[in-house]
């Protein structure tokens, strides 16, 4: 099938290629929305890509007081990693350093999965013997004394082995400003999809990469085929009208969540139209041989 044009935007006949990952989720609550977000943003900082951060994490959805276990505003945070032990380590260090420390916070399981990861059952040792174990309605909590009262933390949270990392699409525009506007629209739309996160800064990656490089030890390096300044000197994927490419990378709890997020993001870009935003949409893959999950762009059209 050749490339198609939808609402004046060219959609390449290609596909995104994604990988199986391990994921967990927690619910962070705080006295108000500001501090729930603050704890969540802090613990998901420096978590854009497993290449250098150990995990990929972001806020999945914000939760109103009616949807949290303690009736306070909260955020559901998702964390993904390639291996269970790395995910466990990242979960504990991030919650221990960023949520336990955040004023008024509490932390609950955000996923029922095939296995459990330690949460409060490890962080309780901060209590130095003054921690209190409580079982309420079949759920196990630890109460750890801190300087503004108590940090309440559920003992464990769930782990899923069916998560997907690396769903993506490229937003290609005549200028970087237009690429950014279109990408922001996509990120806003994906924010409403439960179970999917966009872990890069503000949900957007500008340094999409290829695997490996000419220097020894580089796991990933510049994707020159999509770099507009190299258009004339390498075998470029960019036509003369493209001056900026931004990548939206999507991680999801399930295959379906990633597909739903890609659909929502691509729909938002297409609805914005080529005058204000992108003129072309593409996606990144490795020829379809490495990743377990394939998302063909023609199946993602609105």
């Amino acid at each position: 099938m050749p490339n198609v044009s939808v609402n004046g935007i060219t959609v390449d006949d290609t596909f995104a290629e994604a990988f199986g990952m391990r994921a967990t989720a927690i619910i962070i609550t705080a006295p108000n929305r500001k501090w729930a977000r603050q704890a969540a943003v802090t613990m998901t900082g420096f978590a854009t890509s497993v290449i250098g951060c150990g995990c990929e994490a972001a806020i999945d959805v914000e939760l109103p007081p009616s949807a949290t276990p303690d009736g306070r505003p909260g955020c559901r945070v998702m964390i993904l990693a390639m291996r269970t032990d790395e995910l466990q380590k990242q979960l504990l260090t991030r919650v221990g350093q960023c949520v336990l420390t955040s004023p008024g916070s509490a932390c609950f399981a955000g996923l029922e999965g095939s296995a459990e990861l330690k949460l409060g059952s490890a962080l309780r040792y901060f209590g130095d013997g003054w921690q209190i174990s409580k079982k309420i309605g079949g759920r196990h909590f630890w109460r750890v004394p801190v300087m503004d009262g108590e940090f309440l933390c559920e003992a464990t949270t769930g782990l899923t082995k069916g998560a997907v990392g690396g769903g993506n699409f490229f937003v290609m525009a005549e200028s970087s400003a237009k690429a950014l506007v279109a990408s922001e629209a996509a990120v806003a739309a994906i924010g409403l999809v439960p179970g999917a996160i966009v872990p890069f800064p503000g949900g957007i990656a500008r340094s999409g990469s290829k695997i490996g490089g000419k220097y020894k030890g580089m796991i990933a390096s510049a994707n020159e085929a999509y770099a507009p300044t190299l258009r004339g000197v390498v075998r470029s994927e960019l036509g003369p009208d493209i001056n900026a490419v931004l990548e939206i990378v999507i991680d999801g709890e399930t295959n379906d969540a990633v597909a739903a997020a890609m659909k929502a993001g691509i729909k938002a870009v297409i609805e914005l139209g080529p005058k204000k935003g992108a003129v072309r949409i593409s996606a990144g893959n490795y020829g379809g041989k490495l990743g377990k999950f394939i998302y063909s762009l023609k199946d993602m059209l609105p």
Binding site: P31, P69, D70, R72, I136, G137, F141, G149, L152
Partner: peptide
Amino acid sequence: APESVFAAVVDRH
């Protein structure tokens, strides 16, 4: 008498 999330969770339960 600090604010207590435990109290909120118990009350709701």
